[in-house]
Simulated scan of single mutants.
Amino acid sequence: MMYKILKVELFKLFREAKTWYAIAAVLIIEFIILFAAYYQGKTILELLLDNLRQSFYFEGNLLNGNLLLYIVLNSLWFNLPLILMIVSSALITEEYKTGTLKTLMLQAVSKKKLITAKYITSVIFTISILALLMLSSFLLAYGIFGDGDLVVYLGTLNFFPAEEAFCRILWAFASGTLSMIFFTTVSVTLGIILKEPTKTWIASALFLILSSLFIKADFGNFGDYFFPKLTNSWQRFFAYDLDHYSICQDNIMLLGYTVLFAFIGIYKFSKTDIG
Rank of each mutant, 00 (worst) to 15 (best):
Leu194Gln: 01
Tyr245Met: 09
Ser187His: 00
Ala217Phe: 12
Ser233Asp: 13
Pro228Glu: 11
Lys216Asp: 15
Lys268Asn: 14
Leu190Asn: 00
Gly223Ser: 07
Ala203Asn: 02
Thr258Asp: 09
Asn232Tyr: 09
Thr189Pro: 03
Leu230Pro: 04
Gln235Ser: 09
Arg236His: 08
Ser270Val: 07
Ile215Lys: 09
Leu194Trp: 09
Ile202Trp: 00
Ala203Lys: 01
Asp218Ser: 04
Thr200Leu: 05
Thr198Pro: 04
Ile264Thr: 12
Asp241Ile: 06
Lys216Val: 15
Ile193Gln: 03
Val188Ala: 01
Tyr225Gly: 06
Gly191Met: 03
Cys248Phe: 13
Ser211Thr: 13
Tyr240Leu: 10
Phe263Arg: 06
Ser211Arg: 09
Thr231Leu: 06
Leu230Trp: 02
Tyr245Gly: 07
Gly223Ile: 08
Leu260Ser: 14
Thr258Val: 13
Val186Trp: 01
Leu255Cys: 10
Lys216Met: 15
Leu210Cys: 08
Leu255Val: 08
Gly191Phe: 00
Val186Thr: 03
Phe263Ser: 09
Phe238Cys: 04
Glu196Gln: 10
Ser270Arg: 11
Ser204His: 00
Ala205Asp: 03
Gly220Val: 14
Ser212Trp: 15
Ile247Asp: 03
Phe237Ser: 04
Leu242Asp: 01
Tyr257Arg: 07
Ser246His: 10
Leu190Pro: 00
Leu210Met: 13
Phe207Val: 06
Ala217Asn: 08
Gly191Trp: 02
Phe227Asp: 06
Gly220Ser: 12
Phe226Gly: 05
Met253Gln: 10
Gln235Tyr: 11
Ile215Leu: 08
Asn221His: 09
Thr200Lys: 05
Ser270Glu: 13
Lys268Asp: 15
Val186Asn: 00
Leu208Trp: 15
Phe238Val: 04
Gly220Phe: 03
Val188Arg: 03
Thr258Ile: 14
Lys199His: 03
Lys268Met: 14
Ile266Lys: 09
Phe207Gly: 02
Ala217Asp: 08
Phe261Pro: 12
Ala217Pro: 06
Leu194Ala: 05
Asp243Cys: 01
Phe227Trp: 04
Ser187Glu: 02
Ser233Trp: 10
Ile264Trp: 08
Tyr225Lys: 06
Leu254Lys: 01
Phe226Pro: 04
Ile264Val: 15
His244Ile: 14
Thr231Ser: 02
Ile247Cys: 04
Leu208Ala: 14
Leu208Gly: 12
Ile192Asn: 02
Leu255Glu: 06
Glu196Phe: 08
Leu210Val: 14
Thr258Cys: 08
Ser233Leu: 07
Arg236Thr: 10
Val186Tyr: 00
Gly256Gln: 05
Lys268Tyr: 15
Lys229Phe: 04
Lys268Ala: 15
Ser204Met: 02
Lys199Gln: 06
Leu208Met: 15
Ile193Gly: 01
Ile266Glu: 11
Thr231Trp: 02
Leu254Ile: 01
Phe214Leu: 14
Trp234Pro: 04
Ser233Phe: 09
Tyr225His: 08
Gln235Lys: 07
Asp224Ala: 13
Leu210Phe: 06
Gln249Tyr: 13
